[in-house]
Design a binder for these strands. Structure first.
Lengths: 241, 241, 241, 241
DNA sequence: CATGAATGAGCGTTCATTCAT
DNA sequence: GATGAATGAACGCTCATTCAT
């Protein structure tokens, strides 16, 4: 989380410098202010989209929350669609960086440990970025067409990942004989709804929090999910995991 | 104001009587046409709501699809909300009639057979009413408030049912020690997404149908779902189911 | 009020007979039913227009009240405007027949007695036809253009009558030196609002009836109006009236 | 998250301060333009409501008259009802400030002089705000429910005022024995219609102006009204007024 | 003759986007 | 760069009138 501001921003600063030839503190500050403003709009939009969904959210809601003028919004984003699209992309990027292919290299951790680590990272990321996650875990029917496409594509990538993992598991005799596509879909659905409930457990409404307290501990959610996926409901001992 | 009593009113009385006691072909046909039209609007609305969600669907879309005038829509339904609400209610009713509590009476079928029968009935109903099911399986954030309430209530009833079934299973040593709420939520999420994919497998787009062909056989879906819920992914033999 | 039905309707019956050449009981009854139906619609329309005004009243309200089908309404009247127009005309005709020019012929009653008789007849007619009167006493801004024109014309005729009566009164030294047009307008306005309150006193709302009980006796209203118009508020004795 | 405190925010603070403490010409001009626009809409709405009444007037009429876009109307007023309501309230306020209770204090003017002053002020206000007055003098049946309530309440207050004034007049032997409620209503009705005709005399239609030229001089109208109310039509000398 | 289903222009209102200041 | 007034297409809904039965 700690970062040295100047280094990260440098490339942008250089671009700006090219315009002026003599970059002084003013340009730097202007650039930084621009980024802050942009970020503030994204944060406001996050809250609004989480609460209302894409179509029901209005630009009015966003600029109200961000305390900026209507026109200012359009200085930073070309449209309501664009700001939503960027939020979606940011979250997809976040999740993608948390999921790593399971390595079967000799020195690697046990596959199930790698799987558990993936689960835990995803769950932690969802909790950390709860607003974004709430948006993406929704049915994309309520998105604009572009974002719907990207989210659908993301989840189909996730499914592909799961399917290939299951196939590998089957070849290793770690996974039983089953329709891997169906199992992948079902597991993803279970994961998604469990994550939604976990977000409720971290929400503001105390009644909902109480109802969903089973989901309040993120790591426990991750582990219980894994246990369920691996062993189902029955008490027969699973030798793995 | 004084009037000589005469037979002036008789024909009317007879007419009215004829209307009520012996409806002729005309009235019958009118009634049937009315019902057909109403049904046609419901079907059109189903398609539109399935494709766009509640808020994004416009009355214009529905009347275009149904090929009727604006006013005609309002002859049959008081509002866009009402037609949506009726679709939602109809589907919830359909599903509720297909799910039966598992009986532990001496003469009853084995609990797992009863469970499997429930699964199969639900899956079959979903396939049979694919448009309605597509609507209800969505995130209710895109519904009107009333319908959202009813759907949320329905799914929370389903969860309650699952939780109590799991508890009973635990007391019978049929279900392992686990967080029943979390398992119930995860199973429901898995079921829901699997049903969504099954609906894709029954849709019109041949590309999608090919991709989802694993879900094309409804009964197989039901059975595989049950197997996954009961035994998870691992090959350890489950003695039950 | 008592009338022999057959005689009054005869001319119309003959018309119908011309069509058929052999008028039997059927044609007679049909004609009578037609008139009754027409009258029923007018009565229903009266109630509706009284309660809602012209533009706010809908054809739906009228056919609901008359318990007929939409189409039936248009069999008897070409439009909502026409039925309103006929109600207006009927009331104007009623009032016109009650107001008679004051005669100065040697054998005639005293002018003030004639005037009082006019007042009383008008007030009695308004009470008797309270629904119609309620409609016409309203501001004609809420009428259709045609009816507004006719009502405006009617009241301007009334004003002309008043003005000429006042001029005559002045020539007879019965009326003081004043702007007769202004006095006529003011008197008419007073009369109209008093009549409106009298109608309230005859309405259904018991609270309103109680508030307006000063207006409950029609003849007293007529006499008090005349007294006010002739003598104003001051106690100076008027030798006339 | 760690940030080196710097002067990044200062310019904003200064800007904000400049906005609030020393509004420049731009802000002032914007404010003025805003008020002008708002006023223009009110004026257009006045004309439209005067010509058509509340229900028959459409937002389309108003924005056409004001030569603005649909959306612009709703920038300044929340609804058609609100703009009407504001016009009504403004006029009621105007009139209320012109009517003062008659003082019987030793040093006060003669009661009849105070009464005449009230009449003249009201008449002058009506002439000055002819459009608003035209609206309010109409039958409130054509208003929205809220405004109808306020106007009805206003006129019932006026009646109460008249009734109590008449009662006081009776106790002072300045008013003859009569039904004060009925006299009050009749006087109010006379006043209202006289004002309506006075507004016609100040309207644009030259034919109407000619017909109503008796009402063209506002003060004369006020005085003639008072004379009529006090003395009626008869020539018997009234010692008062 | 009576019916009531069907029509579509019109209503009041919202909101994403533009642009002069 | 920031503003917010202005825009107008689109929304859900109403209602006077028509017409096949």
């Amino acid at each position: 989380m700690m970062r040295v501001p100047d280094e990260v921003d440098e490339p942008e600063v250089l671009d700006a410098a090219a315009d002026e030839l003599a970059p002084d503190g003013r340009a730097l500050r202007a650039e930084r202010r621009r980024n802050e403003r942009r970020e503030a709009i994204l944060v406001a939009a996050q809250r609004v989209f989480r609460d209302k969904g894409y179509h029901q959210a209005s630009v009015h809601d966003i600029i109200d929350d961000a305390r900026i003028a209507r026109g200012t919004f359009y200085l930073y984003f070309a449209s309501k669609q664009e700001v939503f699209s960027q939020l979606v992309d940011e979250f997809l990027r976040l999740i993608r960086t948390q999921v790593r292919r399971i390595s079967l290299e000799p020195g690697a951790d046990a596959p199930l440990d790698q799987l558990r680590a993936n689960f835990r990272r995803v769950v932690a990321t969802v909790v950390e970025h709860d607003d974004l996650a709430s948006i993406i875990l929704r049915d994309p029917i309520s998105f604009d067409e572009d974002s719907r496409g990207r989210v659908d594509h993301f989840f189909s990538q996730v499914l592909d990942l799961l399917v290939s993992a299951l196939r590998m598991g089957q070849s290793l005799r770690l996974v039983r004989d089953c329709d891997v596509h169906m199992v992948a879909v079902t597991a993803l659905g279970g994961l998604r709804l469990a994550l939604v409930h976990m977000l409720m457990a971290h929400g503001d409404d105390p009644v909902v929090r109480a109802r969903e307290r089973a989901f309040s501990h993120a790591e426990a959610v991750a582990d219980e999910l894994m246990a369920f996926f691996l062993r189902g409901m029955t008490p027969a001992p699973a030798t793995v995991g």
